[in-house]
Amino acid sequence: MAVLQAQGLYKSYGQVKALDDVNIEIEDSELLAVIGPSGSGKTTLLRSIAGFVQLDSGKIFIKSKDITDLPPEKRNVAMFFQNYALWPHMTVFENVAYGLKIRRYDKKAIREKVEWALDFLDIKSLAERKPNQLSGGQQQRVALARAIVVQPDVLLLDEPLSNLDAKIRMRIRFELKALQKKLQIATLYVTHDQEEALSIADRIAVMHNGKVLQIGTPQQVYKEPVNLFVADFIGVNSIVRIKPLDKDIVKVGNLEFQPQQGVLHLVIRAEEARVLPAKEHVTLKEGDLKLEGIIMGKLYLGSKHRYEIKIHGIEEILFINSEEAFKINEQIQIIIPKDSFFVYWQ
């Protein structure tokens, strides 16, 4: 059963549509990641579920109960703020205990629950410290403990990893996922980082200009993007735009396409394309794309190189990584498996 249901949410700020007919559901103990570029409406969606945004129209249900018109303090959802928002005048223990005190638990129950939460997040030793004596990672854990200790129906995470440095972020991703599975709380996870979303989410909702463009598992969204925007936003890509010259067939490499309205956009998953010497013989599978070109430039990236490639007959330059070493001006061919490129007319 869906824990959270949002139906037909609309919200506009002046001319800007922050939410444009948004419908999402989160199942029990599911982690739904909402991704999109800044200004896509993902944070507005999260804040409207928390009750900090007044919707123009639409309904939000939590466990089948309509909470659309309830004030923030009456919804049992816990929000994790991007900047942690720990209270500077309270210790870690007091910060975590706050929600329980409001709910009028007795002293003993509060102590037990707070200790459980601090233990769960491995920060028991910090209980008596003030927030300004904690590192960024520790503050993040305290904020998380404060949110989960009240046993919310839905956990709302607003860019939880964006204030951590890259190395810690990688490790925390695993921890966060394990944590969420252990707690079994329905979670809405807002991020602009598609890689983070792919690795952590059960399902992903891609938002753009206030609209949800696609909802699906990470595999679905990655392998079967519904439109150009989703295809381009997920993964590391190179895009080629080709304007059909006449009504004839458009030829791209070894493949031919029937012309349609607009311009042909070819999105190539750069991490799955293979670069080979032009002379090497390859047997193509049905539907694979082969492009021929010339190396224009290269960057050394440690385990691999990043190549700047000019394709014959196409103006735009492709950027593709490969472990093999090529020289500048060398003739090469690029093999792209059939589910690693997408064609859209726009």
Binding site: A50, G51, F52, P71, P72, E73, K74, V77, A78, M79, F81, N83, A85, W87, Y98, G99, I102, R103, R146, V150
Partner: peptide
């Protein structure tokens, strides 16, 4: 005082007065 500090408290169930 960042407004988030108040919003967290409200989110955790505290009335505006509280």
């Amino acid at each position: 005082i960042p407004v988030e500090l108040e919003q967290v408290a409200q989110n955790l169930g505290a009335s505006r007065f509280k």
